[in-house]
């Protein structure tokens, strides 16, 4: 019911469907993942894309950045990357007779951190700290990052040699972890027949602006969550804590993350209130990477099992 939403951000909201459609046109056959990625952006969270190379992770990241009208920087993480490479350094300038700070690629609206697990733990933790605090301290001075600052990181799950997998505690910094998977047959066929996606990207207009995104985040925070939804979410969280297959259940912060994502998902659906369906839609993406399974079972299947087990009280 779109008429239920009566806030100043309506204009931004009206632009959302076109933005979604544009990204879907670029990343074929991944509507659910695209929608989740948008929800992640609207919830003000960082996104981790985890998949094998070549399925369109980077395309998705670029498409998102471009469509949302955000200034973006791309950093390829390698083992010799140092924190100053991304944060920036102060350089003494003789003509002014003082140090001047040269900001690194971090100072942008959207940072695309490619193959983040190839970076050293030092670099990783510098980035993750910036993600958590939305500011960086350089040489004793605190520098704020742009208000919409968002990181989209990618990593390759199969690549094991010479990588530094993100520790579980750090994974928590990402609101969502998504895998794209192979495209289905029709999408792949269209992909093969079509133009180069990156080239296509440059021709398409930006559908949103940073200010729109801020307004939409504001609106997403205002989406109503009823007691029934909170009860359901709490039941889900509780279920993770005494589940036979799970070593450590979800933290309250994880619960807040699910809620924020569910609100954004509801906003994407044009609703001013969250429903249990919204929680279910985002649960796997938000919660799976925060679960620590007892045995070698897949986190995604655990999340799905939880959803199937915990009953939704009417």
């Amino acid at each position: 019911m779109p008429d239920a939403i009566a806030t100043p951000g309506n204009a931004s909201l009206a632009r959302l469907p076109k933005a979604l459609a544009q990204v879907n046109a670029l990343v074929l056959g991944k509507t659910h993942a695209v929608r989740l990625a948008f929800a992640c952006l609207l919830a003000g969270g960082h996104l981790l894309l985890e998949d094998i190379p070549g399925v369109g992770k980077t395309t998705l990241a670029h498409a998102l950045a471009h469509t949302c009208g955000l200034a973006y920087q791309r950093v390829q993480f390698t083992s010799d990357l140092t924190p100053t490479d991304i944060i920036g350094v102060g350089i003494y300038e003789r003509e002014h007779g003082q140090f001047r700070f040269h900001p690194g690629p971090l100072f942008t609206e959207l940072l695309l951190a490619d193959e983040i697990n190839r970076g050293t733990p030092k670099v990783q933790s510098a980035l993750l700290e910036a993600m958590a605090e939305s500011q960086v301290s350089v040489e004793g001075e605190t520098r704020a990052l742009p208000a919409v600052f968002t990181v989209i990181a990618t990593q390759n799950p199969l690549d094991l040699a010479g990588t530094h997998p993100l520790p579980d505690s750090q994974l928590d910094r990402f609101l969502m972890r998504l895998s794209l998977g192979y495209p289905d047959a029709a999408a792949e066929r269209a992909l093969l027949a079509g133009e180069d996606r990156r080239a296509l990207l440059r021709e398409l207009p930006a559908r949103l602006a940073a200010s729109d995104l801020l307004a939409l985040r504001q609106q997403a925070r205002a989406v109503n969550t009823s007691a029934a939804v909170l009860d359901y979410l709490q039941a889900l969280l509780a279920a993770t804590r005494d589940h036979a297959e799970i070593r450590v259940g979800l933290s309250p912060r994880a619960g807040l993350a699910v809620l924020a994502a569910a609100r954004a998902w509801a906003l994407l659906a044009g609703r001013d209130h969250v429903m249990p369906e919204d929680v279910q839609a985002v649960f796997a993406a938000v919660a799976a990477h925060r679960l620590q399974p007892l045995r070698n079972s897949s986190r995604e299947s655990l999340a799905a099992a939880l959803l199937a087990e915990v009953s939704v009280r009417a």
């Binding site: 429903m275 249990p276 369906e277 279910q280 959803l307 199937a308 087990e309 915990v310 009953s311 939704v312 009417a314």
Partner: peptide, 20 residues
């Protein structure tokens, strides 16, 4: 309502949300 629907053969799954 749910009980009546169940008698008519429509059962709600454990994790199925009411509206769905």
């Amino acid at each position: 309502l749910e009980r009546r629907l169940a008698r008519a053969g429509h059962r709600r799954g454990a994790g199925e949300a009411p509206v769905a």
